[in-house]
Amino acid sequence: MSVMAEGHEATEAARARKFGSLYSRNASAVVSRGLMATRSSNWLVMASGFLEPVLFLVSMGVGLGSIVGPVQGPSGQEISYAAYIAPALLAVSAMNGAIYDSTWNVFFKMNFAKLYQGMLYTSLGPLDVAMGEIFLALLRGLLYATGFTAVMGMMGLLTTPWALLMMPASVLIAFGFASFGMGVTSFMKTFQQMDWVNFFLLPMFLFSATFYPLSVYPEPIQWLVQAMPLWHGVELLRQISVGSFGPATVVHIGYYLVMILVGILLTTGRLRALFLK
């Protein structure tokens, strides 16, 4: 009977907390759920997310690199082609991971797995769910970035301690895309519409100075590419990788800070549309 009485206190205490209209200060419950689910999920799937950029690095860096030869790095010095594309691939992988987690994954859990439906019948608010999911996405992003940086190290592509800053920087990039992606998902109704996300991502991947310098384009296209978020991520990581910073670095970071802010505003503004039908 004492257990019952104690239990009663616990439930009363849980009810006596302060609640917001869309938020119960309990995003950590969503995070711990995510970690628990990861534990029982397929480790191979997790590990494979890290593999993709590594494969690109080996194939393009080694295979194509032997044909291309050295190229000009951010500060004007010659670097190997592999060293040139590695930071770009990391930026792309941060983008892809964050977008996947905040669009497809959210869309699927919402409409098919009915996971959020269950969560939202508790005292969790939509904001708890959104924050928890974004945090999980960033955690995974950090994990992958760490792995990728380690591979770069093994391939001898790390030449300065500054390069270690690529890890937090890629989390910044992931944050920008994740907060934005979730906001965009709130407008999506069908899987076909979700496909449109790819039509945006693929060209960005191909054209954001990932595999060759921006200078090959005519001026107007250069401007267009520079307006895209991925280009800023690629350039930011590239600068960090060789430890060469300048005013542009601040612009790149600023771009992402603004993107995160806008993304969060968009997502919170759309929370009801996203989670409450």
Binding site: I67, G69, V71, P203, L206, P213, V216
Partner: peptide, 23 residues
């Protein structure tokens, strides 16, 4: 249509400037 255009342009034209210049 979109993918081929994007890939051909990015790789065949963009990347080619690096590649053809060298070898």
């Amino acid at each position: 249509v979109g993918m081929p255009v994007a890939y051909l342009f990015a790789m065949g034209v963009g990347l080619a400037t690096l590649v053809d210049a060298n070898q």
